[in-house]
Nucleic acid binder design. Structure first.
Length: 485
RNA sequence: CGGGGAGUGGCGCAGCCUGGUUAGCGCGCUUGCCUUGGGAGCAAGAGGUCGUCGGUUCAAAUCCGACCUCCCCGACCA
């Protein structure tokens, strides 16, 4: 779209400057705002409503798979955090500490939770005695603090909201099954609800969670060609159960450490929705998570309050009864054109215009946000057609994102090709890798790309006869590389 | 955390270099009239401790220092 044809004029076009577009859309669409503290954002009602939809849809899935919600303390004693060596090493650089209560200096300082494995581990050791207590399938919705150096609204903030699952199992196999079940659930969630295709697989040792035995993740491609981690699922093995002494008497009357998992998704998902679907005019929200799915705009002429408005209010009732999230924008201080641009920027999936001509014709005009197509719809078919159009939009956003991912996933067999792709095209690059951390480091230093994920079908056999793009040794896997957020 | 840029009514900016009336402009906002199918028009209004703290000076938005926040580019992370 050329700049002159743009109907939304208050934001920098995405195609012109992606970073600026992102920062502006977050503020102008009233998703979030900055505060006087670095990295601390306020999530405003319109942004929070997206998160609430994500939360509800995710919570339904978590509960449907047998998990229950609980709430653990915000603070974690330093000694607890230190029990698992790798865990403390990974997290201490970004922990915020409470050192005093009122005027009293604390005997032991308290960490503001950067994640809850430590405090939950302590409690699990109290609660678990027998194999009959297992599995433990807990989830918590909470806020987290990590003292980040570089912050961006939704993508990386000092405080963020998330859900963290923490489970305990009798066997290693059960824990692995849980880890993969959640990974699959996350993938399905992103694709179904957020209309964002993701690549699921394992992380490398360099990229795994501090304290985990194995980390799995889902990775998505944003529309600027950079990858974004959208969720992680960790098989913790017995690392924490040994550190926190979480033992149970098994079916053979022997004491054993439990096998654990933990997994999480965050408010970062809101950022992903913005970056994966947005266009030059602003947000394009997937209907499943859009706070407003349909905006009804009366076209006011003459005695419109007697003619047009009743039709608009009737349409609102019809659509509400059909279970849709509807907003009537009957403000008199703005012209229809102004409202069109405003709701486009805010990403409302479907706009319905009703004017005098429409009332006479017994119809309404539908305008899809994703492709900006207009369609007259008889008033009698509003609800059915609106629901159908919203489904079409959800599907078409997903299809577009999937096409983008396909178009931007390339294979490089040589380091020269690899560097060329990252330099000129970005996106995912699938390349053979020897499995060595040194090659990972070297590639990262030279190209800023990291191994985002290794899907199961890219392991061992898939790499047979191929050589590592970095060292030339025999490849152990085909890895997805990308520059990432 | 290093390099670069920025902070002036809600938003976008000018003024600063070369200190000195009442700190301007566009948009937005309020009120009234009039309008409304892609960001209407006229008229009258309201709104600013110039990011914060300190220094220089008779006098600071302007000069100096420190700090805070944001943006961009690099080292660490959901």
């Amino acid at each position: 779209m050329s700049k002159d044809e743009r109907l939304v004029k208050q934001i920098t076009p995405k195609s012109e400057d992606f970073s600026r577009w992102y920062a502006e859309i977050v503020q102008k669409a009233e998703l979030a705002d900055y505060t006087p503290m670095k990295g601390m954002m306020v999530i405003r009602p319109y942004g929070y409503a997206i998160w609430e939809n994500i939360q509800r849809l995710m919570d339904d899935r978590i509960k449907a798979t047998g998990h229950v919600n609980a709430y653990f303390p915000l603070f974690i004693p330093e000694s607890f955090l230190k029990k698992e060596a790798e865990h403390v090493e990974g997290f201490t650089p970004e922990v915020a500490w409470v050192t005093a209560g009122g005027n009293e200096e604390l005997e032991e300082r308290l960490a503001v939770r950067p994640t809850s494995e430590a405090i939950i581990g302590y409690l699990y050791s109290k609660w678990i005695k027998s194999w009959r207590d297992l599995p433990i399938l807990y989830n918590q919705w909470a806020n987290i603090v990590r003292w980040e150096k570089v912050t961006r609204p939704f993508l990386r903030t000092t405080e963020f909201l998330w859900q963290e699952g923490h489970t305990c199992h009798e066997t290693a196999q059960e824990a692995e099954e849980e880890t993969l079940k959640i990974l699959a659930m996350y993938k399905e969630f992103c694709e179904t609800e957020l209309a964002i295709p993701v690549i699921a697989g394992r992380k490398t040792l360099r990229e795994k969670f501090a304290g985990a035995q194995m980390t799995y993740a889902i990775e998505a491609l944003m529309s600027d060609g950079k990858a974004l981690q959208m969720g992680t699922s960790h098989n913790l093995g017995q690392h924490f159960s040994k550190a926190f002494d979480i033992k149970f008497e098994d079916r053979n009357q022997t004491l054993q450490y439990v096998w654990q998992t933990s997994w999480g998704t965050t408010t970062r998902m809101v950022g992903a929705v913005i970056m994966a679907h947005g266009d030059d005019s602003g947000l394009r929200l997937p209907p499943r998570v859009a706070p407003v799915q349909v905006v009804l705009i009366p076209i006011a002429f003459g005695n419109w309050k007697e003619t047009v408005l009743p039709a608009v209010l009737a349409a609102q009732e019809t659509l509400k009864k059909a279970g849709l999230r509807v907003l009537v924008d009957a403000r008199e201080e703005f012209t229809p054109g102004w409202k069109f641009a405003e709701h486009e920027m805010r990403g409302v999936p479907l706009r319905i215009e009703i004017g005098p001509r429409d009332v006479k014709a017994g119809q309404a005009v539908f305008v899809r946000r994703d492709i900006k197509a207009k369609e007259p719809v008889p008033l009698g078919e509003l609800a059915v057609r609106a629901a159908a159009v919203l489904d079409e939009i959800q599907a078409s956003l997903y299809a577009a994102a999937l096409k983008f991912q396909d178009d931007n996933t390339r294979v490089a067999e040589t380091y020269a090709d690899f560097k060329d792709i990252l330099e000129n095209r970005r996106g995912f690059v699938k390349s053979p890798w020897c499995g060595g951390g040194e090659c990972e480091d070297k590639i990262k230093a030279e190209t800023m790309a990291t191994i985002r994920v290794i899907p199961p079908d890219c392991e061992g056999p898939a790499a047979e006869g191929r050589t590592c793009i970095s060292c030339g040794r025999e490849a152990k896997a085909i890895a997805y590389f990308a520059r990432a957020y």
